[in-house]
Amino acid sequence: MKILEIKNLKFSYNEHFKLNIDYMYIEKGEFVSIIGPNGSGKTTVLKLLTNLEKKDNGEIIINKKNIENYSKKELFKKISVVPQEFFTSFDFTVENIISSGRIPYETLFSKDEEIIEEVMQRTNTWTFKDRIYNYLSGGEKQRVMLTRALVQDADILLLDEFVSQIDPGYTQQLIRMVKEESIEKNKSVLSIFHDVNLASLYSDRIYIFKDGRIKYSGKPEKIITEKIMKEIFNIECIIVKHPIKNKPQVIFEY
């Protein structure tokens, strides 16, 4: 079942950038990635999906309902986001930031504290729950924002280069956690990656963007090729198979 569909989407920043997506979709429980050069429109798509930017034309459909027909509270339950960066002017604690993911679910008899602690234990953020968010390292902030998104328990998880500032150990742990959310809880994931190899390892399908358009889409085995990598990123490379996952991996010719 298609949980998200994008049809004939058009968006522009004056004359400097134009985004045109004829059709794009995500199935329920699917892990989908977007890769492409800087300025190709990857983050813009996520902004349009969360109404941070307003489209010029086209449709964004979630669960067969146009995104324009959702209230903010309803949309908060459908989509959660881990942005590249998150800033706050106030000295909120880590627990304050993460707890805000439960706002749409708050009731007099809710047991959100148990949910919040359980997710924070899984992401290893519970140990520094009382620290001030603004004083964390970049990698710690990203872990906090991922935890907040998981606490939100939305149907679709949007990730904008969410492991770009995290060390290799936590990168593996957190991506595996997101993959488990997709498989075990039937959550849909749309993730932007700069790292082609990470996208290939964990994705069911990949969209490759260039110049505001989808140039290629499909399973990693079909579209992570030497020819396409040269066309999209202008790199000389060799494609090898991962010894365990049997997914294509890019080896650069230095």
Score class of each variant (00 low, 15 high):
residue 77 K to F: 03
residue 176 R to K: 15
residue 41 G to S: 11
residue 145 M to Q: 01
residue 131 R to S: 15
residue 223 I to C: 04
residue 165 Q to H: 11
residue 79 I to V: 15
residue 172 Q to W: 12
residue 89 S to C: 07
residue 142 Q to N: 12
residue 166 I to C: 05
residue 53 E to K: 03
residue 17 F to S: 05
residue 224 I to S: 04
residue 163 V to Y: 01
residue 253 E to K: 15
residue 180 E to P: 06
residue 161 E to M: 05
residue 74 E to W: 13
residue 251 I to C: 09
residue 12 S to K: 15
residue 56 D to K: 03
residue 65 K to W: 08
residue 251 I to W: 12
residue 225 T to A: 04
residue 26 I to E: 02
residue 39 G to F: 02
residue 31 F to C: 06
residue 117 E to I: 12
residue 197 N to S: 12
residue 197 N to W: 01
residue 8 N to S: 14
residue 196 V to P: 04
residue 22 D to Y: 00
residue 42 K to E: 07
residue 86 F to A: 11
residue 93 T to I: 15
residue 173 Q to F: 07
residue 230 K to E: 02
residue 252 F to P: 05
residue 32 V to G: 04
residue 226 E to T: 15
residue 173 Q to M: 12
residue 143 R to A: 03
residue 143 R to P: 03
residue 72 K to D: 12
residue 111 K to L: 10
residue 172 Q to R: 15
residue 80 S to G: 09
residue 176 R to C: 10
residue 183 I to N: 05
residue 72 K to W: 04
residue 217 S to V: 11
residue 58 G to A: 02
residue 66 N to H: 10
residue 11 F to C: 04
residue 211 D to Y: 14
residue 28 K to C: 02
residue 90 F to N: 03
residue 191 S to C: 12
residue 153 D to Q: 11
residue 131 R to T: 08
residue 197 N to L: 13
residue 71 S to W: 10
residue 26 I to V: 11
residue 52 L to I: 02
residue 106 E to M: 08
residue 101 G to Q: 07
residue 55 K to E: 12
residue 103 I to F: 13
residue 100 S to A: 14
residue 48 L to S: 03
residue 63 N to F: 05
residue 242 H to C: 03
residue 226 E to K: 14
residue 56 D to G: 06
residue 46 L to C: 04
residue 239 I to M: 05
residue 168 P to S: 06
residue 186 N to K: 13
residue 58 G to Q: 03
residue 156 I to Q: 12
residue 152 Q to A: 14
residue 20 N to R: 06
residue 130 D to A: 05
residue 251 I to V: 15
residue 104 P to M: 09
residue 116 I to W: 01
residue 90 F to W: 13
residue 163 V to G: 01
residue 59 E to F: 04
residue 245 K to D: 11
residue 16 H to N: 14
residue 95 E to H: 08
residue 172 Q to L: 15
residue 222 K to W: 01
residue 87 F to T: 09
residue 53 E to G: 01
residue 21 I to Q: 00
residue 171 T to G: 14
residue 62 I to F: 13
residue 174 L to S: 07
residue 209 F to V: 12
residue 138 G to F: 11
residue 53 E to I: 05
residue 21 I to C: 04
residue 151 V to F: 08
residue 97 I to N: 08
residue 32 V to C: 06
residue 179 K to N: 08
residue 102 R to A: 09
residue 190 L to M: 06
residue 238 I to N: 10
residue 104 P to L: 06
residue 129 K to R: 15
residue 59 E to D: 06
residue 204 D to R: 00
residue 212 G to S: 03
residue 194 H to S: 10
residue 219 K to M: 04
residue 169 G to I: 14
residue 215 K to H: 13
residue 91 D to W: 09
residue 163 V to C: 01
